[in-house]
Design a protein around this nucleic acid. Sequence first.
RNA 1: GGGCCGUUAGCUCAGUUGGCAGAGCAUCGGACUUUUAAUCCGAGUGUCCAGGGUUCGAGCCCCUGACGGCCCA
Length: 549
Amino acid sequence: MVERDEFFQVRSEKLERLRQQGIDPYPARYKRTHTIKKVLELLAKRESKPTDTEGRPVSITGRVIAVRNMGKAAFLDIRDGTGQIQGYLQRDVLGDGYDLLKDLDLGDFLGVYGKLTRTRRGEPSVSAQSITLLGKALRPPPEKWRGLQDVQQRFRQREVDLLSNQGVRERFILRSKVVEGIRRFLSNRDFIEVETPILLAVAAGGVAQPFTTQHNALSRTLYLRIATELHLKRCIIGGLDRVFEIGRIFRNEGLDARHNPEFTTLESYQAYTDYNEVMEMVEEMVSTLAMDNLGATQIQVGETSIELKPSWKRLSLREAIITYAGLDIEEYPDAQSLAAQMRERNVPVTQEDSWGRLVDKLLGDKVEPNLIQPTFLMDYPVEMTPLAKRIPGNPRYVERFEGFINGMEVCNAYSELNDPVEQRLRFEEQEELRKDHDGEDFDRLDEEFLTAIEYGMPPTGGLGMGIDRLMMMLSGQTTIREVVLFPHLSWSQEDIFREVDRRIQDMRSEDPSITNDTLFNRLSSELPGEVRSRVADGELRSRIEQRSN
RNA sequence: GGGCCGUUAGCUCAGUUGGCAGAGCAUCGGACUUUUAAUCCGAGUGUCCAGGGUUCGAGCCCCUGACGGCCCA
């Protein structure tokens, strides 16, 4: 995919030529006086005052993104992280320095020193007195108007996507601002930010498959966290009354438009509050983020207009299912009868599904797609939620809500269970369910957490929010890969070949006398199907032969 | 898992009824001292995703597969 083509060759020759002329194509430093944004502001300021002083020369730096060469003069468009300006180069001003233009390519970094002016056509420009190469590019940028379009390449080589697509750059700047906004919002409410472990002995606090890894020094299997919940509650127990963490969590699941195996969550815990107050905080926070960063609480996602201003709609889970699926889950309190009702409504179910899992499917299938305007679904069956407090007087349900926007879950929150005796029972129920429902995920019992909560935990409102999904919503994107800088993708062709080569090497070092035929047969049967199907027999044999010495 | 669409130059894309493989950008050579997607003259550039089939002849038709996108489950 990425080869050293003729473009690479031509640019390498230019690089060599520059070196021979004594020009360092990668100098260590260059004195820049202004960012491009600052220089544009400076020009506007000068022009607004009629003093008409010319001002001192400036120096700017950036990537050359266009060249309009007029022979003895040239115009370069130069872009840095703050903006874009034109450089005006003239042979009779630059003298020999002008020759650099011959070896300059699109994508190179350049420093331009000179007077800040406006051309006849009114274009802000730096009229160069000297130009300095700051970094030569050996590969050309993508097509200049449409940018890089190939979806795979955009994600695999995000830097090329970023440098050629302004909208992508803006989206990730927005992401940074939103995350900063979350920190500010919570900090203003006296939350402190903490960091909790990613490597854990037990992957508890959520319902998902963990990734596993190995700690060599301790000869111990560790799991990557699937949630930050339990450690944050331990902070609450310890007297840090308002804590939050923004961090990566890992779930060993498939990839699709809404799922990346690693993603970023905000979790916050506030002592002496409950889920009602958390709800108010969420609607306040999300609308503030939209207002501060998009300038409005109303956002447009495709054809749909969404109003984020509080208060959001509140609806009990049971009512929602009655409304959108025409089914009262209380009338079907066991998995068998509920599954039968769901089959009638064309919701795919299996024999193994637990009652909680069935309700979850019903929610995902029939309810979620209808929750376009921001909606809090409240009060979930206790089976689905081992870490939340029961509703007084209605013990089949817990004080839990999930927030939905544009048919997508964006947050999940509880009045946290702080009764240590019940917490143990609820974990044990999960373990029981796990035995009865093979292959289904349940939360895991965490002894350290149970001990912690036995020291006493205050009533607490807790929140989990998916930052990636929040960003999808705020930036009007429909896939998570558009809001994650480097999303996970399936095997690339390079990955495939690397994997094949690695296995060949392993097998040879295991058995140096192994024949090419045996190797071929072993590889054919032992390579994962995903890999084997993408390597032709001939390719496989030639790779074996290449590595036979 | 199913359906639809796609895969052609470095990039973005055309490609007629099955009859010499194309454009723009980029690149290379030349002209041009105020351009704005500069312009003008000239040049080079291909595993048409892979494999099979039909045919005198396949980028195009048929089959199989790979990869990708979208939709559905």
